[in-house]
Design a protein around this nucleic acid. Structure first.
Lengths: 141, 141
DNA sequence: TTGACATCGTTGCAATCGCAACGGTATTTT
DNA sequence: AAAATACCGTTGCGATTGCAACGATGTCAA
């Protein structure tokens, strides 16, 4: 039997992911003019308090350089504050400003609505997808 | 309750997809030095016979420009032949050379092994993932 | 304590990507 | 039949990305 790309899991995963990412990116782009890395940094800061570039890099699947640049842009926009870490002067302490916090509250609602919409589309398959993603993300290498 | 990126479907989908893509890309990079677009073009040509750039663009989720450039590189490498479409001179007819076909036979085995490995990792969640991806990919906009 | 080594964030750079414009060809309209 | 329109593949170009190197700081070992 011949090989079909459409039946190939990595391909299908990639197509689905970029499609969904774009759909959602259009929303926060319209709301706040954010890029994907900026959104991820903000979202992580929202529930993490003061945090270093390295932390975000490790937790949020973004290269150090992208976190660094995104943080700079967000600082420029007044959404994020950079300060010095108390004891380790190599570290930068990132946290949301009040403007950043206010924005994130709006974005959270948008994100939750979007996710609800997705779950509705997925319907009975939502649970299966979620479990499968868990496995794929945890899986080594 | 606070918002957590790790529970957000678009984010998790994106992380899983890039992770899996890289794992697989490492395999065909080692085997044949191919990039992702090159792999996709080859894979599509393998089961589609003579086909235009536009066809691949539409079916394989790659921008026209990437298909065009990938096809040129593959032609350079002797894996793909470009000829003229019989009746419509705007079209390019792409097809595998015998070298390309031989390579694809090796790559198919690698791809199928990889997919089998993934399915084993996913185990009982494989079916759910597959159905969910179907829905996400079909969904419009 | 001092020197080797590790870690952090930033920056430079090359590769990749997606969009838009272009020349060339076909199709439709008048 | 001519003009307007639509479509195809290529190319140019700006934006994004990931990697690697760097300066600065911190840690560990001798």
């Amino acid at each position: 039997m011949p090989f079909h790309l459409d039946d190939f899991l990595p391909y299908r995963l990639s197509v689905a992911a970029t499609r969904i990412s774009r759909r959602f990116a259009a929303l926060y782009e319209a709301e706040a003019g954010l890029t994907i890395p900026e959104w991820r940094v903000l979202a992580h800061l929202d529930h993490s308090g003061s945090v270093s570039v390295r932390d975000i890099h490790a937790r949020v699947n973004l290269d150090k350089s992208m976190v660094s640049r995104a943080a700079s842009r967000l600082q420029e926009a007044g959404l994020v504050r950079k300060s010095e870490h108390g004891t380790d002067r190599r570290l930068v302490a990132l946290e949301l400003t009040s403007d950043g916090l206010a924005l994130m509250q709006r974005l959270e609602r948008i994100a939750e609505n979007f996710q609800a919409e997705l779950l509705a589309e997925l319907d009975e398959d939502a649970a299966g997808l979620s479990k499968a993603l868990d496995r794929l993300i945890e899986s080594k290498t």
